[in-house]
Nucleic acid binder design. Structure first.
Lengths: 318, 318
DNA sequence: AAAAATAGTTGACAAAGTCAAATAAATTAG
DNA sequence: CTAATTTATTTGACTTTGTCAACTATTTTT
């Protein structure tokens, strides 16, 4: 352990002492409630785990099984939670919050939020940003992975100022990082967006943005070209949020919209190296109808056009 | 409490849960020692306070007087500490570590250091630095010390993929928020970027990006139109980072570059509502040379052209 | 000199957490 | 198919940790 490391260690230890106090301060309201810290964490985890059993809580919270057992018993007596014995495995009991339990937790959450609000509200806006970014940095570094939690992702289809810029940013950044496209690609995306705006109409065109923590992490759009023909465009996902079904969710939203709007033909343009996206397109029924070479973006690529025919009257059948 | 704040609160709460676990992990070695966490903190504080009494420890550690009294008694029995009654005030007892106590604490410290070393040793050097910087940021913010924000901002003039997208994002977002421009403005910025890329040349064109926490929070660019004439474009600052001289820094960089490149005339286009920016432009010597009306972006605006003449041979005089 | 305040101590207690043994259901080995 | 083993949870007995109020000793205030 060299002296540089010792320096880091000292700073980290000081931070730990400091943050222990902050956490203590924030948890004080819990001491004033009828619940212990462990109990609140149990309530919280029951709410946030999809399937919750005592076993899982023991692992997650590193709590003593006997201790937990009694907490659960007390919660059940107070009808904050109820238990359902698993039909497949009689040893397991699934835990659920009752309405009363949800209510109680929600009040505790509100208190907790207030405490944190008090802590940060007096900070100038840019310091808030710095603090939050710093926390993300620490968390990412120590957990070894970018944070991704699917439940925190929201999808909205309203187009807001700044959205298309961010969309271009994502395209420029990740096509360069992953496919080695050059800067001309980002310029090309700018042009497609500009052209779109010249004909933009909320009645025929639609964007969807997936957001996590208030930041756009994915997008897709449908642009109408005629009453029956539309184009699917700008389908992209931040790499940290792939593989969790989010791409399919966006794609399905887009196709559903086409059906509802009565578009009979949807086409899209992509390049042959977008293997995963192409698989997803084909899964929902897109077929390749044309291809040609493109060298504009620093690599030799095959640009491909895919088309999806939507059966007329599909809406009626639903 | 608005939704932006709620987002911050969620991130902070997640960080708190996460860091509670980290702290728990780090404290585990203490559980394996013969001391409780409170006891270790008492030992630590006796060592680190110049003059230590029970009273001070009670205030510092927010520990129960009775509880502390017993801890001190035990420590004295184990001859980890010794007490000296104050000659001025017989109610006070000054607390000191014995050699044995110092030794014990030092071993505990070593354990603690090792734990932290394990935590950070597997991180790449860059991450270690950013973790430590982030911790300092959080600590400063919460302890009321203002964050020296300008120290955390870096300016780079290299154009990277994703940059112009983010630049468009900033324009779309903040011109809408602050000047009520409509979405067409963002489309217009896309077009200006696209046009620029069609003639982009690193020898004549240059971008500067101000970054805080790895995120772009400001930009400016110089685009050459001929050997002697250039345009200043895309000057924008995230509102949270205004008023700290950053705008002038960027503007000066841009003008300096023009001088170095031998541009004799620099012009820029803006709108009459950009009062603060215009003042900055005029401060460095820009003069209004033309104006005309523009209604494209949802408001009646006066578009203005400013021009700066750079004296020939200015470089020589330096 | 009496009353009030302060620093620390003590006893009685409650809350939080631990450990090992017990129970009940599932899985595996023979 | 039964016995042995494993797994999820529970229970009893216990320790540790932390709290509260009453107490002593000393100093400060009135």
């Amino acid at each position: 352990m060299n002296s540089r490391n010792m320096n880091l260690i000292h700073i980290i230890r000081r931070f730990n002492r400091f943050y222990t106090n902050i956490l203590g301060l924030l948890d004080k309201h819990i001491y004033e409630s009828e619940f212990s810290l462990a109990e609140v964490r149990v309530l919280y985890d029951i709410e946030h785990m999809e399937v919750c059993t005592a076993k899982k809580l023991i692992e997650e919270l590193k709590i003593d099984p006997g201790y937990l057992s009694r907490i659960i018993k007390r919660f059940e007596n107070d009808s904050l939670i109820y238990r359902v014995q698993s039909p497949e495995d009689g040893r397991l009991y699934y835990l659920f919050l009752t309405d009363k339990g949800k209510n109680t937790l929600s009040k505790l959450n509100d208190l907790s939020n207030d405490q944190i609000y008090n802590l940060i509200s007096r900070l100038p806006e840019r310091d808030k940003m710095s603090v939050v970014e710093s926390m993300k940095t620490v968390e990412n570094a120590f957990s070894g992975k970018p944070i991704k939690i699917k439940e925190k992702i929201t999808i909205r289809s309203e187009l807001r100022p700044g959205d298309v810029g961010y969309l271009i940013h994502l395209h420029g950044r990740f096509y360069a990082e992953e496919c080695k496209y050059n800067y001309m690609f980002e310029g090309y995306v700018c042009k497609t967006i500009f052209d779109m705006f010249n004909n933009y109409n909320v009645e025929k065109d639609r964007f969807w943005f997936a957001e996590a923590n208030g930041e756009i992490i994915g997008s897709i759009a449908i642009i109408g070209h005629s009453a029956t023909r539309a184009q699917l465009r700008w389908f992209i996902l931040h790499p940290s949020f792939r593989g969790i079904g989010l791409g399919n969710t966006l794609l399905n939203e887009a196709v559903k919209y086409c059906q509802e709007k009565g578009y009979e033909q949807v086409f899209l343009e992509t390049t042959d190296d977008q293997k995963i996206a192409i698989k997803m397109y084909m899964n929902v029924g897109f077929k390749k109808v044309a291809e040609h070479e493109n060298k504009e973006w620093g690599r030799k690529l095959i640009e491909q056009t895919y088309e999806l025919s939507l059966p007329l009257g599909n809406m009626v059948s639903n």
